[in-house]
Computed example of a mutant assay.
Amino acid sequence: MLHKDFEIAVNKLPEEQRKQKPDQDKLGFGQYYADHMFTMRWNRQDGWHDAQIEPYGNISLDPAAMVLHYGQAIFEGMKAYRSNDGRILLFRPLDNFARMNQSALRMCMPRFPEERVLQALKALIYLDQDWVPSEPGATLYIRPTMVAIEPHLGLRSAEEYLFYIINSPVGAYYSEGFSPTKIYVEDSYVRAVPGGVGFAKTAGNYAASLKAQVEAHNKGFTQVLWLDAVEHKYIEEVGTSNIFFVINDVLVTPPLGGSILPGITRDSVLKLAEEWEIPVEERRLTIGEVIQAAEDGSLQESFGTGTAAVISPVGELTYCEKTYTIAGGGIGPLSQRFYDAIQEIQFGAREDSQNWVVPVC
């Protein structure tokens, strides 16, 4: 049930109670939170209701809340950008909300009215506009989340949900910033299986990836590259990103087959590649093919794509304890071109030929 006409109440935090803004040169990622958040609730009787912008604060859950026992939790990652002329811009927000609704369907959770929630998000950001960083490269990270809050022990879909949005000023996702990353190819653990929930941005997917990620980090790697769960040979995605390879001047990326996330940045890269007339192949490719291309010199570069880091050049790939250097360990020309173009569009410094940018104010 979608209640498109719900009212949005606003409860502002008094000025004297608002938090001191952090130093924009030391933001890190996900450490600070803006003064307000948006919340709304759903139940089977009333649909979406109690929509409000309120002071950022703790959420009270019954110990029997179903999210804690059966894992009905989904989220999204978006950003707001401050342009050089002071405007605040969003990048493809309705695409994020549409993807979140697809996650909701997969997890047996209620869909929400995307346009109305976008209006609420704009109002929330406008209220906390001083939290949108002005330093180059810094942004306001936006985290919409939905969790099952009905208190019930027994496996079924919940009948009560909380949806909320919190905002966090952030710097670079990786400590190295836009620099080549070191990727470890995981051939033991698996992230997702065909027919599962790999395409949904649900909390359990990320919990399942932590063991491999921790082990990779302990070995000095930035991220894990996942292989398919059946044959352990087909490339899927990196822990926080979709993955691209440039092989013999062709941009190659795994297809969306239900076990990888349909990334918004991934789609942006594909659309820009089409606009720039760059040859693209969305196809299954094996780790063996990638290693062979690295050995014979036809692998020219590789990069990950995601909202948090935008473009993450891959400088090294390690598989079966052997390390392969990519693009001389540096940043490839296509990685740089996509990074520059997407960032310039997001910050309003380049013509938005795809109509991706949505102004807040």
Rank of each mutant, 00 (worst) to 15 (best):
L155T: 09
L153E: 14
E150N: 05
L124N: 08
E159M: 02
A158W: 01
G137R: 02
S134T: 15
L140F: 12
T139M: 12
V117P: 09
F163Q: 06
E115W: 01
T139E: 11
E150H: 05
V147H: 01
I142H: 06
M146V: 10
E135V: 10
G137I: 03
I149N: 03
E114P: 03
L162I: 06
R116V: 08
S157N: 12
L162Q: 06
L118Q: 08
A120F: 13
P144G: 10
Q129H: 15
A123D: 10
L127Q: 11
R156Q: 12
L155K: 11
L121E: 01
T145F: 07
P144R: 09
E160V: 00
W131I: 08
L153Y: 13
F163H: 04
R156T: 13
E159N: 07
N167W: 01
I125S: 14
E115Y: 05
D128G: 06
L155Y: 06
L124G: 03
Y126R: 11
L162G: 04
L127F: 04
L162A: 10
V117Y: 02
L140Q: 06
K122H: 06
E135M: 10
A138G: 08
Y161L: 00
T145C: 15
H152Y: 15
E159G: 05
P151N: 11
I166C: 06
L153H: 14
I165Y: 01
F163C: 02
